[in-house]
Design a protein around this nucleic acid. Structure first.
Length: 672
RNA sequence: GGCGGUGUAGCUCAGUUGGUUAGAGCAUGGGAUUCAUAAGCCCAGGGUCGGUGGUUCGAAUCCACCCGCCGCUACCA
């Protein structure tokens, strides 16, 4: 009896491009869906762009277009990116849709009727210039604890303090730079705690992986608090029923977007949405990253419980992607967009590589370029593609592309391949793709050894019949391996199906044997990957660089550093240089190069550790004006916190020459 | 700070309920081949399984402590 399975991946935020980190999840989910389809189950894969909220409103403003236009453009890009990586959604919709509006209002009203919605006054930050309420991350100012400048409105990246935005020293709107005002507003809240018991039962029943459940325990122990689900206008989102200037917070309507996508699909395809989504006979699964566990493990099921919808059977949580062991980084060129990747490399390489690393654990997976190139060349090309490549053309030359029958040896090879079918099925079902890939790899080794032992290139001359049975066995092995790999490598599978002249492979085909069958022309299945292509992709991903712009070669003069690559006025604008007066200067005990300077920059005083002790006597500096790199991220040094850098030239040691403005400049003045 | 995760060959990772000389792929060295996308096959080198102590006849596997790295710390998206 086929299962009916509805699956979702998290909705990507419509504020930027899809990158290779996103793709971990969509590839993981897509493999799962394709596997189930191959087992004959009825599957539906729904997703959408997450389109609401302040960041999108601001991005649209910056682009000078309406938010609707902005998200339409992103939707087009996202859809193309996913298609390029063979992510096979049944519907890739948007949260800015009539279906989502209707469902959001329905769920809100039902929660309200259930008594789970309350109102509380909330202090909020408002920018009168931009005429909008500011989320904490759009307010910046000086940390009230350590004095670090330019910190977010809720926490300090330098000392780690968390605080309220109202406590920030010299707060300013990060968009226009003016000080915001503080005001009070009534917000709607969802009483999450009403559902604590039901949520606990859900997790006890195995809603998530165990490590996720442990994390949830922590949250339960800390106590569930009311969730703020409204935002004051202007806001890009859905208006709350009965309100003029209040909107649903983006995270309220985002998960409802899963349902809206399903509903839109049902309406277009003559299916009953309520039956598909809500029938207990149907299975529902969400795939998400560990960063949004709170929303999907607590808020979302509680919302569904409170509004009379069933909750998912299971929430599958995965970890993040690191590249070469480190966080993805724009400056290192490892923040790679899906579209950039696809311009340089075959998307199936990445699908295979991710599959070879994915397990059901909530662990980060690492994309190591060296490992990536190795796996593609030795596995995809050396094992799988090669198996077809060393048998197909020979069958064509010697036997007119017609398969014979199997002998005992060949049947044994096939038996070894089909024996692990259940193991592979369990691996896919349980998200242990890494195990699946390892198992398949071992089978391919077995098949390659089989070719080696039977030497069809020799028997072709002495015993053609034997050569034919060998090649028949090998190509049957290719067929079985392709079935196993098809969820991961759909395009590869398609090529093999064409080459073998067979119908699209299903899991049940594992037990069939292809004999006395005419096959098609062999076509190369994979190309080897050159490490230079990876390098080129990384270079193109480095921020601020355009692929074609070769930096002019700077002339080399002995003793003088070459001029660095060109940058723009915008790059320079990030650097805030100020005139500063040296208030005090003293040698740092225990350090022979450092001077501890206290600088007056007009609005504040800064501590700076400067490595100029060998060139300047401390007392000679007091009272002088210097140039300060004022917005350099503060750095905790062995001898204290340094909050900036003073500018100087010279090779170092005793030859250091501090820069100074001409007479008349005052502390705090901007240098540009 | 608290909580969670993690640390196994140069690299990426497996190691089932604790059980004989700790495995794979890549990389490295050697060999025999040539059907094949400089692919495939055979052999070899390489690890005190983060550290210390403990439980046990026996621990990479269980316990304690320590060290390193990563993440989370909610009304931020």
């Amino acid at each position: 009896m086929p299962r009916t399975i509805v699956v979702t991946s998290a909705l990507p935020y419509a504020n930027g491009p899809i990158h290779i980190g996103h793709l971990v999840e969509y590839i993981q989910t897509d493999i799962w869906i394709r596997f189930h389809r191959m087992c004959g189950n009825r599957c539906f894969y729904f997703c959408a762009d997450d389109t609401h909220g302040t960041p999108i409103m601001i991005s649209a403003r910056k682009a000078g277009i309406a938010p609707e236009q902005f998200i339409a453009k992103i939707h087009k890009e996202h859809s193309a990116d996913f298609a390029g990586f063979h992510v096979d959604f049944d519907n890739y919709y948007t949260t800015h849709s009539p279906e989502n509006k209707t469902l959001s209002e329905l769920i809100f009203n039902r929660l309200n009727e259930a008594g789970s919605i309350v109102k509380h006054p909330v202090g909020q930050t408002y920018c009168e210039v931009d005429q909008m309420p500011l989320p904490d991350r759009y307010v910046r100012g000086t940390c009230p604890r350590c004095g670090a400048v330019d910190q977010y409105g809720d926490s300090c990246e330098v000392c780690g303090a968390t605080y309220r935005t109202v406590d920030l020293v010299q707060p300013r709107c990060s968009l226009c730079g003016t000080p915001p005002v503080f005001q009070t507003s009534e917000h709607y809240f969802f009483k999450l705690a009403d559902y604590e018991k039901q949520l606990k039962d859900l997790f006890a029943a195995g809603y998530t992986q165990k490590s996720v459940a442990n994390k949830l325990d922590e949250w339960f122990q800390a106590g569930l608090k009311d969730w703020d689900i409204s935002r004051d206008g202007p806001y890009f989102g859905f208006k709350i029923p009965g309100e003029d200037n209040k909107y649903f917070y983006v995270w309220l309507d985002a998960p409802i977007g899963y349902m809206a996508s399903a509903r839109n699909y049902c309406e277009r395809n003559g299916l009953n949405f309520d039956e598909l989504w809500n029938s207990p006979a149907n299975e529902l699964y969400h795939f998400i990253g560990k960063d949004i566990m709170y929303f999907h493990a607590l808020f979302w099921p509680a919302m569904l419980m409170g509004s009379g919808f069933k909750t998912a059977n299971k929430l599958f949580v995965h970890g993040f992607l690191t590249v070469n062991g480190e966080k993805m980084s724009k400056s290192r060129g490892t923040f790679i967009k899906a579209s950039t990747y696809a311009r340089h490399l075959d998307p199936e390489y990445l699908r295979y590589y991710y599959a070879s690393k994915l397990t059901d654990a909530v662990e980060d997976i690492d994309l190591s370029f060296q490992d990536f190139v190795g796996k593609v060349n030795s596995d995809l090309v050396g094992k799988y593609a090669n198996l077809a490549s060393r048998s197909g053309p020979m069958l064509a030359r010697q036997f007119n592309s017609r398969l014979g029958t199997l002998d005992e040896d060949g049947r044994q090879l096939l038996a070894r391949l089909t024996a692990v079918k259940e193991q592979i099925v369990e691996g896919y079902e349980g998200l242990n793709y890494a195990t699946v890939v390892r198992t398949i790899g071992a089978l391919a080794d077995d098949a390659n050894r089989y070719v080696e032992q039977n030497q069809p290139w020799t028997t072709a001359k002495t015993d053609p019949q034997k050569a034919l049975t060998t090649l028949t066995a090998v190509l049957n092995a290719v067929r079985v391996l392709t079935i196993y790999l098809k969820p991961i490598l759909p395009q590869f599978a398609q090529k093999v199906e064409k080459f073998l002249s067979i119908d699209p492979l299903q899991f049940a085909d594992v037990d069939k044997i292809l004999e006395n069958h005419q096959i098609g022309a062999f076509e190369r299945l994979f190309e080897r990957v050159d490490e230079e292509k990876v390098t080129a992709m990384v270079e193109e991903s480095k921020e601020g660089q355009t692929p074609a712009a070769a930096a002019p070669v700077a002339p080399v003069v002995p003793g003088i550093e070459p001029i660095k690559p060109e940058c723009t006025i915008d790059d320079f604008a990030k650097i805030d240089l100020r005139v500063a007066r040296v208030v005090s200067a003293e040698k740092v005990a225990g350090a022979d190069k450092l001077l501890h300077l206290v600088l007056d920059v007009g609005v504040a005083q800064k501590n700076v550790m400067a490595g100029i002790a060998k060139a300047y006597a401390p007392e000679s500096l007091v009272g002088r004006h210097v140039v300060l790199f004022a917005n350099l991220k503060p750095r905790q040094m062995k001898f204290g916190l340094s909050e900036g850098m003073i500018l100087a030239s010279g090779p170092g040691g005793t030859e250091i020459f501090v820069l100074a403005p001409d007479a008349g400049a005052k502390p705090g003045q901007k240098i540009s």
